[in-house]
Design a protein around this nucleic acid. Structure first.
Lengths: 188, 188
DNA sequence: CTCAATTTTCAGGAATTTCTGAAACTTTGA
DNA sequence: TCAAAGTTTCAGAAATTCCTGAAAATTGAG
């Protein structure tokens, strides 16, 4: 690899990390390279900089496209495809969260929903089903909340996050307000 | 495997999913089995039910222990160790989030911190460093918020989550209040 | 301390995943 | 329509990860 030590360490870190969760080393490194790159790169440039085979890069890029993590563009008079990552890190974060939800959470929710429909044939089954229900409700609450939050604009989100656990006080305050007015601020 | 179809499908789903993110099939299945089990199981029982070798189960349990996801207990007059998962799904969720943070996020933050200390030797480096800083700030904000939230009690947390994006309105309200009083509710 | 019960370690075979080069395919400009 | 430039596919080699059985280590009752 012919990059500065700075970029070098960033790229290899993403390689290692990549394999710690779902994606592989190649994909992690390609992403990292694109993320810090000043200008979009074409597949050959990526292959050369990371010393991967051209075909490996092609597969990696396809994988990144399926995660919606890379942008594709063309330059006039050049037939090659140039890749880059979106500039806005918040947008990247949201995309990542959405995709992980789709790949890791949704299938589990579907399975759990199915299991909860089954008729329990034994005491053990009844217990298992109750446990699955607890898991289902937790996951559903958390993911619904997540997607609620994702639809907020970045400024509000940042404000909320900076507020941190102080939101508790705000909540207590509105709670006592709603007791006064008789209106409930909670949904459902 | 000698389980009911209900437990069967739950366990195999966790096996598949397990390999989709960091942990392997064995570990996923052991966890799933313990999660729905009425009573704690010892290593031999687990090995038998899942048709894994005894040693594989031993390694899987060790892995789960390192994630703090299993409880260990003994019965009088029985030298074997019995394993189970905590009852409270919220507690499980928190543990999982903490461990993932420790394993997946902290190392990245450390690397980024290091990279940001380096002196950029070129225009490309300067750009890379700026990008890393954006990433660093986002991750730090999100994880700090997460741990803030984790320290809230479950009731408050649930209330907050059920509120969903309506929290936006509460926020706008307090914002206008603070304009009136001149006090700022945000930290930092 | 001894011995049997239980758990852990670990070398190497099995299974899976990753990566490559060659070939097939696609696109576009002439 | 053709040829050249570029991209994707895919079979199998290479690397990695997983899993097992055998042996070693640990534990605790007597």
């Amino acid at each position: 690899m012919n990059a500065t030590p700075l970029v070098q360490s960033f790229v290899s870190h993403f390689g290692e990390m990549g394999s710690r969760w779902g994606i592989n080393r190649t994909v992690g490194q390609i992403y990292a390279l694109l993320f810090v790159s000043e200008k979009p790169l074409n597949a050959d440039e990526i292959a050369e900089r990371l010393s991967f085979s051209r075909s490996n890069v092609s597969m990696g890029l396809k994988e990144l496209e399926s995660w919606r993590l890379v942008k594709l563009q063309h330059y006039p008079g050049d037939r090659r495809e140039y890749f880059s990552t979106p500039d806005d890190v918040w947008a990247i974060f949201k995309t990542l969260a959405e995709e992980r939800k789709k790949r890791e959470v949704e299938p589990t929710l579907t399975m759990l929903r199915g299991a909860m429909m089954e008729t329990a044939g034994s005491e053990a089954d009844r217990h298992a089903q109750a446990r699955m229900k607890e898991m289902y409700q937790l996951i559903e609450l958390v993911t619904t909340w997540f997607s609620d939050i994702q639809h907020m604009d970045v400024e509000t989100l940042q404000r909320l996050m900076k507020l941190g656990s102080q939101v508790q006080k705000v909540l207590q305050f509105t709670q006592s307000l709603s007791k006064l007015t008789g209106r409930d601020t909670e949904r459902e």
